[in-house]
Simulated scan of single mutants.
Amino acid sequence: MTLRSLSSVTRPLTRLLARFSACAFLLGGSLLIVAPVHAQEEEAAAEGDAKAPTGHEKTLMDQFHEGGWVMYPITACSVALIWLITDLWSRTNIRRMAPGEHVTQVQDLFRAGDYVGAYQFCKNNNSAFCDVSRVALSFVGDGEEAVEAALFTELNKVNSIIQTRINYLSVIGVCTPMIGLTGTVTGMMNAFETLGTSGVGDPSKLSAAIGEVLVATASGLFIAVPAFMFFYFLRNRLQGSMHQLQEVVGALFRKMPYAHLKDAHVGEEEFYAAIPNWVAGAGEPAVAVAVAG
């Protein structure tokens, strides 16, 4: 191989190495320039995070005060809601309306024909079943129609007492959004007043007024939604329990021997209606009654 041919082979390799060295030099220089700048940016970001104030997480009491004066009646409604739900859940339970031991004892007394004892037992025990049975027993001497009318009246009385309490849930469900809306209106008034006096230069005051609007509205809806849910649920629960109570009491007076109980006074109620005082006594003539004209 001659010198010319050797130089022709090595010349392209030399050029390639030169270009590669130049690229490596430029890449290394750029990394040396970019690395300090990136490090400075990270340090500046870290300092900014350190200097930035940490967000304060609001507590429940902070939100209560932020809602304004309407939070006090809304809180009262929430307490009443919890009390009503707890009370009505117990009242609409068929096991409380007609306890098994009460039903069994009265059934045994009915089988024995001891209606006076059944009346006394119902009088001394407090339950819807005992109240309805006691009232019905006091009318057995007046016939089947009187007993059925007494049963119907007393069942309606029990139903109306519990239904009235359930209706209070609907009242709470309607009133709490209105109370929250009142807080919304007053909060918006404060917001516009703040905007008119200080303008947009102090956004913290404006945000506080808007926060009052949102908290008051949300609190009213937060109470109203479960109030309506439990209103319909407990109303349906009461209807089912009343049907079961009616079946249990009606079974007691089915096939009642009214013929043997005619004019019997089982209960202890006092009768106020007496024979008119102008009716003649036994063997005595009737005394004329003068009617003032």
Rank of each mutant, 00 (worst) to 15 (best):
A146W: 01
A146D: 02
Y168V: 12
G141L: 08
G183D: 06
I161V: 14
R165N: 12
F139N: 02
D142V: 01
T164P: 05
I172S: 08
L181E: 02
G141D: 07
V171E: 00
I161F: 10
N156D: 15
I161R: 12
T164Q: 09
S170E: 02
T176G: 05
F139P: 00
G183E: 02
E148A: 13
S138N: 03
A136S: 07
I166Q: 07
I162W: 05
L137T: 06
S170F: 10
C175L: 14
G143E: 01
E154K: 13
L137V: 10
E154I: 05
S170R: 09
Q163P: 06
I166R: 04
E144G: 00
I172K: 09
G180K: 09
S138F: 03
T153N: 01
L169T: 09
C175K: 02
V158A: 13
N167Y: 07
E145N: 08
Q163Y: 13
G143L: 02
I162P: 02
F139K: 10
T176W: 08
Q163R: 13
K157R: 15
I166G: 08
N156H: 15
L181M: 13
F139T: 10
E154S: 11
S138Q: 04
P177K: 14
S160R: 07
F152T: 12
T182H: 09
V158R: 13
D142G: 04
I179H: 07
V171M: 13
F152C: 02
N167E: 07
Y168L: 11
V140A: 12
L181R: 05
D142R: 12
V171P: 00
I172H: 04
S170C: 07
G141K: 10
Q163D: 15
S160I: 05
K157L: 14
A149W: 03
C175Y: 07
T164R: 11
M178L: 15
R165A: 11
G183V: 11
A149E: 10
S160L: 13
I172T: 03
Q163S: 15
E145Q: 07
V158E: 15
I166L: 12
N159H: 10
G141V: 14
I172R: 12
G173L: 09
S138I: 04
T176E: 02
L151P: 10
T164F: 11
C175H: 00
I166F: 12
C175P: 00
E148L: 14
L137R: 03
E144M: 04
T182N: 10
R165T: 00
D142W: 00
E145R: 04
A150S: 15
L151N: 14
L169F: 12
L155R: 06
E144Y: 00
V171H: 03
G183C: 09
G180T: 03
E148V: 15
A150L: 09
L181D: 04
N159W: 08
G141R: 11
V174D: 12
N167T: 08
V158K: 06
M178I: 13
V147P: 00
A146K: 07
D142I: 01
L169P: 03
